[in-house]
Design a protein around this nucleic acid. Sequence first.
DNA 1: CATGAATGAGACTTCATTCAT
DNA 2: AATGAATGAAGTCTCATTCAT
Lengths: 224, 224, 224, 224
Amino acid sequence: MSPAEIIQRRRRKEARPQELLDAALSLFVEKGFAATRAEEVAALAGVSKGTLYLYFPSKEELLKAVISHFLVARITEGAELAQRFEGPRAQLLRGMLIDWWTDLYESPASGVFKLVITEVRNFPEIAEHYAREVIEPAHQMIGGIITQGIARGEFRQVDVSTAVHSLVLPLVMMCLHRHSLGACPQDWHLDPRAFIEQHVHLVLDGLCAAQGASPSPTASPTNP
Amino acid sequence: MSPAEIIQRRRRKEARPQELLDAALSLFVEKGFAATRAEEVAALAGVSKGTLYLYFPSKEELLKAVISHFLVARITEGAELAQRFEGPRAQLLRGMLIDWWTDLYESPASGVFKLVITEVRNFPEIAEHYAREVIEPAHQMIGGIITQGIARGEFRQVDVSTAVHSLVLPLVMMCLHRHSLGACPQDWHLDPRAFIEQHVHLVLDGLCAAQGASPSPTASPTNP
Amino acid sequence: MSPAEIIQRRRRKEARPQELLDAALSLFVEKGFAATRAEEVAALAGVSKGTLYLYFPSKEELLKAVISHFLVARITEGAELAQRFEGPRAQLLRGMLIDWWTDLYESPASGVFKLVITEVRNFPEIAEHYAREVIEPAHQMIGGIITQGIARGEFRQVDVSTAVHSLVLPLVMMCLHRHSLGACPQDWHLDPRAFIEQHVHLVLDGLCAAQGASPSPTASPTNP
Amino acid sequence: MSPAEIIQRRRRKEARPQELLDAALSLFVEKGFAATRAEEVAALAGVSKGTLYLYFPSKEELLKAVISHFLVARITEGAELAQRFEGPRAQLLRGMLIDWWTDLYESPASGVFKLVITEVRNFPEIAEHYAREVIEPAHQMIGGIITQGIARGEFRQVDVSTAVHSLVLPLVMMCLHRHSLGACPQDWHLDPRAFIEQHVHLVLDGLCAAQGASPSPTASPTNP
DNA sequence: CATGAATGAGACTTCATTCAT
DNA sequence: AATGAATGAAGTCTCATTCAT
């Protein structure tokens, strides 16, 4: 047996879980967990049905592994990036939300949002994990930047949590859209990067505006 | 059979499709289409398995009927409401997005967003219908108000489509959240109405601000 | 719909569980539980795979039902028979073990012994049920007769439990044999009724013999 | 590789088949052939799945080897023992059935009875082999002793074949019991050696009794 | 010789749908 | 119109067996 062959074999064996996770992510996001057959996942990963079960004890465990796997690394990476930047908070926010998020949007990992939305109620263990490992740190990261901006006088004294959601939720929606309507042929394909940029600027305008120019919040046409 | 019973029976018979649609919406949103059994829908509607098939030719047609049914009426109702209001566009926007949307958020119809996100890729006919009957008119309605506001000098000259998305996508996300993580016990239950109000104000601040005070959009920490 | 058809349909539905139990007993005894496919059972009962699962929640539950079902009625029936008989205990024993047991031997119920022997260790719940519902009452019944016989002076003062086993175990073995080697073509088909009669007489001879004529139990050729 | 290691390895290699047979006997008897996985057998023998197939071409052949292997040596050994003994036939019988059988009962080989009962109908080749190599010689051996005893005037003129069965079948049942109900925790653990002794004495009492004291065989309570 | 990764036929079980009542 | 027993295609998972190392 040649060393090359050993390496070849060993590399395949070690690469299997990742290949299966990639295949599973792709199919679960496209068709949903229940509508994806285990054999399809195996086939997309280039192995047989049985091999899938050598690496994951059940389809459900595969789902949990997929959800655990793809976002965590990106989140910590983003948090480190934020830590290192010293300039104005508005500029940092723009960097995080535009560059870092655009990367995420374009990677398969963006499908995890759809997967979580779709499957949490069927697999409640997912909720806790996702809240702790993804939402919590991401919220801390963005919220921390805004809090710093307020402290430095860059931003108005807004409700931090709301501001985080206003900034981030449209971006999450973009990810969901990418893997639902956005994947349908007749879609009007809006440019994600352009939208992200403009959205971030629009909300930052709201954050930075020195004088709260908006009218009183209580008046409304249907509730006079 | 007394006349009262005849009326009772006739009324039930006429109400059947609605009861089945309600039951189907509830279960499809909670568990997903594929993971919901036809018999469960029938049971929740208080009829037997066979009866479901008297009113809908298949589970898939039931899904399509659910998606068609719940949002259309609300959209046209909202559009009429908007048409009648004469005051400032900012005030109208607030009214639409706060009162009208909060109603929607709290009704079971809000689950349709999750259903569409989840199922479009498996049933492409849904995409076309949803785009034409829901997204299009809703976007027209909000976009029209913003365009009027710009024309009247109330709003800055922003990209209308982006502004619509920035306003609406977080609200859609709230609906998705309500039927996914928000339905899990360990969730941190943020107050939807409060968030909606603050979000709309924040973005309107960005829209109304006379001078674009935000820094140059090209500088970013990771893309110097 | 004709009344006859209703009855026909209703009768079939009510008869299903029994038909399935009969089929399952036959196949489980012949091939063993693990080697019998659920679909075979259904086919032998004249229904489809799915129908089996309308009546039994799993193959394992079907096994338990089979074991519970077939012996209990016979045991109580035998106990009643014994209760009613007034004559000599030796004659009663002969009646029970020859007539009643020959019936059992020739019925499919005799297969349950093989099934229990084979499957108790895989399904421990079976053990308790079988011990309580079958062994216990049957042992009581035979043991009671012998005890009475000793009290009346018909039998020698032997160990009752051993006598019960000496009488009954060969008969159980006959049942096992019938469904194992006895079912193989090359078997030497000994006549079960003849053997049962002679065996019962032989052991009764041991029981009745007025004087213990057998040599001392401690001497043996390999253990001097 | 040191000479010691070579010897060690060679010894292991030669011992493999026996180790695999031991492991297979143990598991097949406990769980049944169909419910035992080949890998379990290998693991219990301390080798890998693949190694099993170096020594036995299939799981089925392993079963046949197990059944062939364990009883034959004991039978011939017993037959030789019987040949050498010169004393009274009753004493010889007691020796054979008590000492020799108790040994067998306590060894793993006793499980073969269960295995045969369980599997003959699925693997008919087993029947012929078992009848020729086990039943036939054992029956000859015990039957021969009884025939000699009758010839010598030690025993009454009974049906030899029945007497053999009456003596032996309870002992076989004891072996079956040991590996089925007897292995369940809630069992009433009767003492096998005590039972065997008493049973042999009881039946020998029937054999030796000078006068057939038992009542006429035709009268029975249910068949008057 | 020995290993254990890989395969794929096959078993159990579910569930959308039909149809006799 | 309503029911629910019956069906059988299809999906998940197991495991005997092979073969490259």
